[in-house]
């Protein structure tokens, strides 16, 4: 067992009746990384996470978490924020969080102290005696998030952590996730918001119909989907350059995508531009597609209408 692998999923299959929710899926999550888990609705993300957490049993395959089978002791080192949020509603926040911390093996005093500290960190300090029923939806979600990291877990698994949050709260939670990762906590995060993955994610896994369709470091995945093209800003007749097959311009008329002929590299193009007296270049970049494009492309290629 690799010590650097916080989660190892090997050939895991889960069926509901005849429907195959997860199909021979394998991947690893490495220590300290922010691992993004992507996929269309119904792709099997939540089922996979539930299997990692031993809520569901896989039909086939093995899962190792923090070095082995999920024992009760290991559960104390994991924080989980389920997709369907929910906590006891009629209990003061500090009592609620104290209880949840206790269930993760903390002493009551520690759990309550840490709860108050975290509530203050997300601007809910004054609500510690209030009940969940008295809070807005966004506030409740922050409380749920706090409950995930109360016990300083080594691994947190969060299902759509930012859904339904306003930009300010999203930023607060994002900062906390990045902080956690810097301090060595491993984060497995499922999301639909590609922008978050591009900003925070180290590696990603995308599944569709329970099968792995994309897997690897975020930058590598993006460049793998990059076609042989560069994006430039500047002045001049781009189509006249040697090695350019065709030119697209963006809707503002500012960025030009130069599709290159086979065998022509971006380095060749840079040299050509530098040598050309009739072209002025303000910016030059590889044409890397956004994850949104890749997501649509891959999900679309698998050929179905997803909700």
């Amino acid at each position: 067992m690799n010590r650097e692998h916080v989660i190892e999923v090997r050939e895991v299959t889960k069926k509901y009746g005849t429907h195959v929710a997860v199909d021979a899926l394998s991947f690893e999550v490495q220590r300290g990384e922010i691992f993004a888990f992507l996929g269309p609705n119904g792709a099997g993300k939540t089922t996979t996470m539930r299997m990692i957490l031993d809520i569901l049993k896989p039909d086939q395959g093995q899962i190792a978490v923090l070095g082995g089978a999920l024992t009760e002791e290991i559960k104390d080192h994991i924080g989980y924020m389920p997709e369907e949020r929910g906590l006891y509603r009629n209990v003061p926040l500090v009592d609620l969080l104290g209880y949840l911390g206790g269930l993760k093996g903390m002493s009551q005093a520690d759990a309550r102290r840490r709860a108050i500290q975290l509530l203050e960190q997300v601007d809910l300090g004054e609500y510690q005696k209030k009940k969940l029923t008295e809070l807005s939806k966004g506030m409740a979600q922050k409380v749920q998030f706090i409950s995930t990291l109360l016990h300083n877990p080594e691994l947190i698994i969060v299902d759509e952590p930012f859904s339904g949050l306003d930009p300010v709260n999203t930023q607060t939670l994002k900062d906390m996730v990045i902080d956690l990762s810097r301090n060595g906590t491993t984060v497995l995060m499922s999301t639909h918001q590609m922008q978050q993955v591009e900003e925070m994610g180290h590696r990603l896994l995308m599944i569709d119909h329970g099968r792995r369709v994309l897997y690897g470091p975020v930058d590598e995945v993006r460049s793998r989907f990059a076609e042989n093209a560069v994006v430039v800003e500047g002045e001049g007749d781009w189509a006249a350059l040697p090695g350019v097959k065709s030119v697209d311009v963006d809707e503002f008329g500012r960025e030009y995508t130069l599709h290159l002929k086979d065998g022509v590299t971006s380095d060749d193009m840079m040299q050509a531009l530098a040598a050309s007296p009739v072209h002025k270049v303000r910016s030059f970049a590889l044409a890397v597609p956004s994850l949104t494009d890749i997501f649509i492309q891959v999900a679309g290629r698998n050929g179905n209408n997803h909700g």
């Binding site: 389920p82 906590l87 006891y88 949840l100 269930l103």
Partner: peptide, 16 residues
């Protein structure tokens, strides 16, 4: 109903 179940299950065993 209030979805506490998943959190409880990831903190202790059903028998507990």
């Amino acid at each position: 109903e209030n979805r506490m179940m998943e959190i409880l299950l990831t903190s202790c065993t059903p028998l507990q």
